[in-house]
Amino acid sequence: MASNSKTRGKGGTGRNTPTAPAKPADRAATTISSGGGARGGASGGGTRGGAGTNPVAGTNSPAGANSPAGANSAGGTGGGSGPARRGKAGAEERRTKAAAARAAAAAQERRRRNLIVAGVVVVVLIIVGVIGFAVQNSREESKPVVLPAAATGTDGGIVVGQASAPVTVDMYEDFQCPACEALETQTGPTIRTLLDQGKIKIDYHMMSFLGPESKRAANAAAAAANEGKFRQFHDVLYANQPKEHTGGFTKDTLLTLGAKAGLTSQAYKDAVNGGTYDGYVAKVDGDASKAGVTATPTVIIGGKQISGTQLTPDGFRAAVTAAS
């Protein structure tokens, strides 16, 4: 913008037209904020050229601005028609300056347009982000949280075992996770013994981040918990775990496996088919993630997380003893 008006000012004095420098400067000052100053510059050059030589040059120059070459030839015609008034060098200089001013104006216009496009794009991106947030938010809120009867532990954990047991174990598992299956196979019998002996009670937080299979299974497990058969169902599911991410634990499978655990009621079937506890399942998963559970299986005995190497029968027993 600054260099632009400078060029124009010089051109004006060179031509000895006292009003010319003031006029474009004025225009630039008033239109600077809208970016229209660039256009003013181009037109200013054109008008001045017209006054100095003839009106044809004036109308020619804006059209000639399409390309530098075109601008030159247009200026040439204009200069040629009035050689008597000015020297050849002056005309040449004027033409060059007019072309430079037009080029600068075109560059300015281009920059201005780029800025507008960039601004619009950024605003659109922000709007897209906000809309995305709203869309996802409304999707999430559509799931009502129905707590199953046994979900009385912290963060909606399903409590298994005798209420009088001295040690509380928090188990974070996913029905589809192979490492959880390994834990259940290896240490499951020990855990069952400790439960039956009344030494521990367990808060089960069934996570479901591995996929829709996990969600369906966790929903079915909540339905089982509602009928007081969580433990049996839990063990049946791990004994029949499908390979991860293969679409296992379909609704039909869960109904069949439920029957093995003694779940044949209509309420169970409706819950499995209708996803009654989907909201609860999502809540458990979210709460676990907020509690900083970074992997399954995560086992917390008496408030203390035990390491992966401690998940053996002996390690588990030792941790329980230490906590009681």
């Binding site: 225009r27 239109t31 037109s43 804006p62 059209a63 601005a65 399409n66 075109a106 216009e109």
Partner: peptide, 17 residues
Amino acid sequence: LDQPVNDRSGSDADGLE
């Protein structure tokens, strides 16, 4: 978008006059 830039600067200038 790039192409009509110069045309616009020419024709719009008339409006500004």
